[in-house]
Write a protein that binds this DNA or RNA. Sequence first.
DNA 1: CCTGCAGTGTAACTTATGTAACATTGGAAG
DNA 2: CTTCCAATGTTACATAAGTTACACTGCAGG
Lengths: 214, 214
Amino acid sequence: MTHLEQLKGVFEPELLQEMEQFGIYQSFKEGELVMDYGKYIRMMPIVLKGTVKVHRLDENNNEILLYYLSSSESCSMAYSCCVEAKKSEVKAVAEDDVELIGIPHVKLDEWLCKYPSWKNYVMRSFNVRFIELLKSIESIAFHKLDERLISYLKEKQRLSGSSVIKASHNTIADELATSRVVISRLLKQLENSKKIILYRNEIKLLSGFETPLK
Amino acid sequence: MTHLEQLKGVFEPELLQEMEQFGIYQSFKEGELVMDYGKYIRMMPIVLKGTVKVHRLDENNNEILLYYLSSSESCSMAYSCCVEAKKSEVKAVAEDDVELIGIPHVKLDEWLCKYPSWKNYVMRSFNVRFIELLKSIESIAFHKLDERLISYLKEKQRLSGSSVIKASHNTIADELATSRVVISRLLKQLENSKKIILYRNEIKLLSGFETPLK
DNA sequence: CCTGCAGTGTAACTTATGTAACATTGGAAG
DNA sequence: CTTCCAATGTTACATAAGTTACACTGCAGG
């Protein structure tokens, strides 16, 4: 039960034991592909360590960031997919070194009736994912790029726990579905107004950029 | 079992009977509010007749269309919400005269284990909703307004089964989260290129606008 | 028949964002 | 130390979309 430490508070001991027994451990190095667009989904992942970045591609291979999965979170989209053995509608990449446990779809259903904590976990996951997607839609539809960029940086800060964001302008542009020049421009504006300092592959968030208490 | 005709193929007879027994029938006239933003969700609706329009509001009360629910579809977001008695993140309005049956949340869980057809239905709903939301994100993020407008009109055509769309420019603008002037401009362009004819509160789609086979 | 108003047409302008092109720089690889 | 390339800075321009303002037109209600 070494790997499942952080799930102890979430699930009852018998369920944890079954997870240990039937779950499939996987680790990914930073940048590795966790799930590719169009691949069949056979299990539902629960992230144990690290952060997974989930995005959506369009027909021209543009991609846009949907959300991040961090410790003890799971992608419930995978659940609803693998019940019907669907192909993935999204792409998932390891943001840093990631460990996860995959629950085979046979167990998904079995546990649903057997363990209330599992059912609650799954439903809560669904809910969280829906809300993330809604927030994403809201952000794209109602907010200008500069606001979206700021939210993006704050989210990175929250996830990494550091005020120094490691990312190239190009990466950021991809994740916000725009072009590099635009991001460079906006970042430079933020730097001019003393909100950030730009380095190569790094962005330092200054005070006035603290994460709101939320 | 008069109202549940269209669900006959979907669920087993015993489940239908329970639905008849425990479900709560509701009807709404065109334009009536089915679910408001911020209200508590106590049951999961299954649409029996008509179409329900689901949108999201932002802090300034701008709204954007998310998707439509038509016959025998249900809003699985409601499901994941009412398990935890959450407040609604969306607003739902009857697009025309609507009948629906609300399943109380106690039964939701009970049936999940009892009836495989129910579990499958619920999971498929989750999946369909996710994909709708993803399509929505894709549309907003990657497509220009003119393309989005065309998709919007086609979707209206598909749902109503008629090539005459009844809607004011203002309504369309709201649903696409833009302004009336912009929509009038784009519609006029479409009219000039012989794709549509504009009337007051009506838009007639001409040939060349036929719904693609999918 | 008037009146008012929602719905629509349209022009003129601002702004955000996309795009192309090119210069500069810092660091990794040899 | 060179060489090379990804990353960044910057300008100039094109275009989509938002904004304001105002005119016009049917239709509903008195």
